[in-house]
Write a protein that binds this DNA or RNA. Structure first.
Length: 477
RNA sequence: GCCUCAGUAGCUCAGCUGGUUAGAGCGGCGGACUGUUAAUCCGUAGGUCGUAGGUUCGAGCCCUACCUGAGGCGCCA
């Protein structure tokens, strides 16, 4: 390891009088004297003070925006008001110069779209380095929470041979020559000659495999990449995203809701506790951005205020049927403001969810017990025969962040539901075996990692909380 | 996949009912500046107006198609 010190550590310890070396990227060089240096270790810059007469002109010229430098010197108390300590430079080495005539980024406000096109440089900006530190922190907190709760982390397969998961369009995985694939007698592609001897896809969910884990290990969770080949063009969808799927034996829907709520609050508390510098940067960014917006388009609360509000209040919990009744007696419904009708048996539209979350309750809302016909085959049938023990958690601005259910553990009921929904029994025989041999009730949910990162960072487009977004028509970098 | 909007300098934008040589701020480059905080000041270069057609005496501006991006919707996490 190099002998240099992380800037985050220098700023935290403030050991003035010590000789240190730091390495990082120049954020600004002011008055031929002050370098704002950042190495990504934290949100704050270290101010380096340069006596330019002591340095070669080529060195001074090399200190430019986002050039990479090493500085050694003495940490001293700062005379300026913007920082407590600063580094008085003895030596400066230009590790990587920067040709500003060709470099796309500039020390000014730039659009998210432009930075997305330059995703190989955007992590050097305040906003994105904060977003990606928080992304790391949240990923770490996911494991921390489940570990503390006695869950086991389970790696479910990325390549799946099952096409019965029913969670959306899949990306096919094959080593066959797509231009000249072997054919069966019927003229279809002969997948028996493919790498796995059958047709395979990228996973759309690890849930069914996680159920195997839960019915042996008690409490498990998955956290891995997930792939959906849907042509979704929104600020909340990615073709490749990361999903967290806990699965718990002996749990019912209520336990499931309690777990999901505690989990989300743990994640938020974790970063409120440890990453306030980054949250402050993002909070200030949003305030700046909303300055010129009409009042009705602004967030009702600041970012940090919103996060505190979410952890300090119980999530609203209502059934689908109650949601329908609330919507039907709502002002926009009576005035005909909804584009889509509100009718029992039809899934809630985005405008309905927004009304519930942003107008009626103004906090996260858990909607439970949806009609069986709009939910997946594996969800447990309720006694009314019309609804299933499903739950969705809806967040302001983002919509569905969590989707889960108590699973159907009764073999005959499950088989009837599969028949009803045209899911072939033979393809999921192993799944049925879990009910045949030592089964019990269990429940779980899926949480879209990027969506919770979006909520916590206040980024409005999901493409800005993953380093290299994959969306329809776009797989750059 | 559907609907709407946008594309003018490196970036962010202005450009009147179609009318001479297309503007600004920031950034770049050259210079000044030893307590700055998106530093400041002086000077300077930089444009096939997304692409291809069309209408017109004349198109950055009007029309058509396509490309790219954004917002909304659907599908979902």
């Amino acid at each position: 390891m190099a002998k240099h010190t992380d800037i985050a550590r220098v700023l935290a310890e403030q050991k003035t009088g010590e000789k240190i070396e730091v390495k990082g990227w120049v954020r600004a060089f002011r008055a031929n004297r002050f370098i704002a240096l950042n190495d990504g270790s934290g949100a704050n810059n270290l101010q380096v003070v340069v006596d330019f007469e002591q340095f070669d002109e080529s060195v001074i010229k090399g200190i430019s925006f986002h050039s990479c430098i090493a500085v050694s010197g003495t940490l001293v108390e700062s005379q300026g008001s913007g920082q407590a300590v600063e580094l008085q430079a003895d030596t400066i080495e230009i590790l990587g110069g920067n040709d500003l005539e060709k470099y796309p980024l500039q020390p000014k406000r730039q659009t998210m779209e432009f930075l997305r096109e330059n995703a190989h440089f955007r992590m050097r900006t305040n906003t994105f380095s904060s977003v990606f530190r928080l992304r790391h922190a949240l990923a770490f907190a996911v494991h921390s929470f489940f570990n503390e709760e006695g869950f086991y982390y389970m790696h479910t397969p990325i390549i799946t041979g099952s096409d019965a998961e029913g969670a959306g369009e899949m990306f096919q995985v094959t080593t066959l020559d797509v231009k000249d694939s072997p054919k069966t007698d019927e003229g279809q592609v002969d997948y028996s000659q493919d790498f796995f001897g059958k047709a395979t896809n990228l996973t759309v969910s690890g849930q069914l495999q996680a159920e195997i884990g839960a019915l042996a290990m008690g409490k498990v969770y998955t956290f891995g990449p997930t792939f959906r080949a849907e042509n979704s063009n929104t600020s909340r969808h990615l073709a490749e995203f990361w999903m967290i799927e806990p699965e718990v034996a002996f749990a019912d829907l209520k336990d499931n809701m309690d777990l999901a709520e505690a989990f989300v609050k743990y994640l938020i508390n974790y970063v409120l506790d440890k990453y306030m510098d980054d949250l402050n940067i993002l909070d200030a960014r949003i305030q700046q951005e909303e300055k010129n917006m009409k009042a009705e388009l602004r967030r009702p609360m600041g970012l940090i205020e919103t996060l505190r509000f979410v952890v300090d209040n119980e999530f609203a919990r209502i059934t689908y049927t109650e949601a329908i009744n609330l919507l039907r007696s709502s002002k926009p419904y009576k005035k005909g403001r909804f584009e889509y009708d509100v009718e029992w048996g039809v899934d809630l539209q985005a405008e309905h969810e927004r009304w519930l979350v942003e107008k009626k309750f103004q906090k996260p809302v858990i909607v439970t017990d949806y009609p069986k016909d709009i939910k997946a085959f594996y969800m447990r049938m309720n006694d009314d025969g019309k609804t299933v023990a499903a739950m969705d958690i809806l967040f302001p601005g983002i919509g569905e962040v969590v989707g889960g259910s108590q699973r159907e553990e009764r073999l005959n009921v499950l088989m009837d539901r599969m028949t009803e929904m045209d899911v072939h029994h033979d393809e999921l025989d192993w799944y049925l075996d879990l009910r045949r041999f030592g089964g019990n009730k269990h429940a779980g949910f899926g949480l879209g990692f990027e969506r919770i990162v979006q909520f916590i960072t206040g980024m409005t487009n999901i493409r800005d909380v993953i380093a290299f977004p994959r969306t329809p028509g776009s797989a750059e970098f």
